[in-house]
């Protein structure tokens, strides 16, 4: 027992050390730099200023921010619309099929996402796979391109990030107490109604977790939108990269990263709130069932 305790302490403290060194310290450093002034030669000089945040109010940045939110938001929504039915069916599938379905979700992870994005280029491009297929089926004439538009970006982001939506959804749908659905049916609720009033509220934590896991990477991974969408509008990720590397304006890059961290914290708070409420209603449901 004592040995077990030592092991627990060791593993927990090593995780904390890991997070501390590689997540907390860099983020604190970024937070500090975001309030410093930029130097002519040095990346930043120790003079307090709020200027970096004020500079983010520039219309150019607002435009970058809104466009990034739009692309990430729509991609998250499409992941949810595709992922929810899939996770629902997977949770309801037989014990034998389930691991195979899970495998199908995970397999794409084995290939680097940049390579998968270039694979999409080969499918979507002018004289690409879809183009050639349509030609040979006589459904189209001449060559056409499906690249360099928002739809291509949504396809790319949804394809890459879908597993991050399915896995938490699956986890929360699977632990859903099916007896509650039976009870709803017995009491005369239509399938749609019991879905709306029972399934959806109880799986809300999974939905929120999935949305967080998809939305934030969608906001940050700029290479997928840039390769497939043509980079005609700069996105938040490349804006930040640009400040650090090209413009040598670390304080501005740091303050833009802080905006992203702010979004993350906000979403984590929403997640906590939703989790509590779901716990509460599950309790209530069980109590009602017991009564």
């Amino acid at each position: 027992m004592r040995e077990n305790n030592g092991f627990r302490k060791f593993s927990i403290s090593s995780v904390w050390l890991w997070i501390g060194v590689f997540a907390l310290v860099p983020n604190l450093a970024l937070f500090l730099v975001s309030f410093l002034d930029r130097g002519e030669v040095d990346y930043f000089i120790p003079a307090f200023t709020l200027d970096n945040y004020l500079r983010l109010l520039d219309p150019a940045f607002v435009n970058i921010f809104l466009k990034s939110m739009y692309l990430a938001g729509v991609s998250t929504l499409s992941c949810l619309l595709i992922g929810y039915p899939f996770a629902y069916l997977m949770a309801g599938a037989g014990k034998r099929i389930r691991p195979w379905l899970m495998l199908l979700v995970v397999i794409p992870f084995w290939t680097n996402s940049l390579i998968r994005t270039y694979a999409l280029v080969i499918i979507l491009k002018n004289q690409g796979l879809i183009n050639k297929l349509m030609l040979s089926l006589g459904l189209a004439e001449g060559s056409f391109s499906l690249m360099y538009n928002d739809i291509a970006v949504f396809v790319g982001l949804t394809y890459t990030l879908l597993p991050f939506m399915i896995l938490p959804l699956y986890a929360s749908i699977e632990k859903l107490d099916r007896r509650l659905l039976d009870a709803a049916q017995d009491l005369g609720a239509s399938p749609l109604r019991s879905f709306w009033h029972v399934t959806l509220p109880l799986t809300l934590p999974g939905i929120v977790a999935g949305c967080i896991l998809v939305f934030l990477p969608a906001l940050g991974t700029f290479y997928i939108p840039e390769i497939l969408g043509g980079a005609k509008v700069m996105l938040l990720g490349s804006f930040i990269k640009n400040q650090f590397l090209v413009a040598r304006d670390w304080p501005l890059g740091a303050s833009a990263s802080m905006i992203m961290t702010g979004i993350l914290i906000f979403m984590a708070l929403v997640y906590r709130l939703v989790n509590r409420q779901a716990d509460g209603s599950a309790q209530a449901g069980q109590n009602a069932g017991a009564a």
Binding site: A60, N63, M234
Partner: peptide, 20 residues
């Protein structure tokens, strides 16, 4: 070119890249 000029270029570049 110096840091000041780089800032001018960069601000215009970020706008131009987005068609603003």
């Amino acid at each position: 070119y110096g840091g000041k000029t780089l800032q001018i270029y960069k601000n215009y570049w970020e706008k131009a890249r987005s068609g603003l």
